[in-house]
Design a protein around this nucleic acid. Structure first.
Lengths: 202, 202
DNA sequence: GTTGACATAATACAGCTGACCGATAAACCT
DNA sequence: AGGTTTATCGGTCAGCTGTATTATGTCAAC
């Protein structure tokens, strides 16, 4: 064969090409041939690395989630040893919203994936488990914040977690330009301010 | 000619069939032939009422927005003469979230539409204008609530409007079953409680 | 009863889709 | 050296897509 190639690397390269197709040309244009062209390889070569379209989609989605988690981890590390939970939550949400190129790519990918997952049992459980895991992580941060006295103890950690996750609802507003990034950040900060406000002063 | 047929009615019937396809079979299955089959008519007949796929999509989306607005109007009327703004906002959001069959159909339709609109200039401005109009309506309710003393005057109406709209972010969580309808309503009420809380008691 | 607008149907068409196959060549392992 | 594995490519296939065209049916008005 030609040079022994790193399969994982090649697959990630293809996944990135897929993201680019989804971001720049749209979900409707997502086909093996388009992805292959974007990745600069032949249709047949792509099929050598992914047996089916579904397999490619799954990998691209898992990779997107992984990359997002990495971005968050990197950001958290920059926050120092004992980061304030407010900063952690803010980071989590800003990395999930389409506020910069990387986040936008993975965000659109996720949206397309969810829409497909609604009618595919396999994708559905996969997507649900992934999001549920993220939900759990946020709830853990919230509970910890309560335990550490950063949040009023009468806050329900589950409800607060859900409200935080709901803020990803800015996504379509941002994508369509109904609101700008500054608006989203202002609103996000307002919510966090209120969440972390000491009792007696809303 | 044969029986004079009501064009508008027929088109709405087709649009409903399209919703059903999107809801039950998924966006990827959305084709003229599938819609025609779902509507119980021939492929050619459907083309008699919609010159192109794009025209059908636009109509189905406009009709969905219109139906949602109608549901909200009907609900507001049930709230009596001078409804509390909290109830109005709650109604608005519960009708936008996929909490019952009608809302779920239009919700999925909207999601698919937004995803397509990102890469089609025509659809894009159409979608943005529609959402911006809804945003304006919510802001008006918020401003009115402040003027009437239901909301603390130091609330920024724009930020509060954005935070309310962001609550549509529950949609994917509900659709995938990560959270249940009760969770969404609990969180929604918690947010409204906090929004309408008098100053000095968060 | 002929005309003509409208409703419905059937089919053709060019394009793209994903899955699949075979050929070729390069690199590895005995 | 010879056999095996891996990589890449090109092409075929049936199926579906949106669009376009044509044919047939239907009924009101003249």
């Amino acid at each position: 064969m030609p040079k022994q190639v790193n399969h994982q690397e090649r697959r990630e390269e293809i996944a990135r090409a897929l993201w680019r197709v989804v971001e720049q040309r749209g979900v409707t244009r997502l086909s093996l041939r388009e992805v292959a062209q974007e990745a600069g390889m032949s249709h047949g070569q792509l099929q050598h690395y992914f047996a089916s379209r579904a397999a490619l989609l799954c990998f691209a989605m898992d990779f997107a989630a992984e990359q997002t988690a990495d971005r968050v981890d990197r950001g958290v590390r920059e926050l120092g040893d004992r980061p304030h939970p407010r900063d952690v939550l803010r980071l989590l949400l800003t990395e999930m919203l389409p506020l910069h190129a990387d986040a936008r790519a993975t965000s659109r990918m996720s949206a397309a994936y969810v829409l497909e997952a609604l009618h595919d049992e396999g994708l559905r459980t996969r997507a649900r488990d992934g999001i549920a895991q993220g939900r759990e992580l946020v709830e853990q941060v919230v509970r910890r914040a309560i335990a550490d006295g950063h949040l009023r103890p009468d806050r329900d950690p589950v409800t607060e977690t859900h409200l935080l996750l709901a803020l990803t609802g800015f996504t379509p507003l941002l994508e369509l330009g109904v609101i700008g990034p500054a608006d989203a950040l202002t609103a996000l900060d307002a919510h966090l301010d209120r969440l972390f406000a000491p009792s007696g002063q809303p």
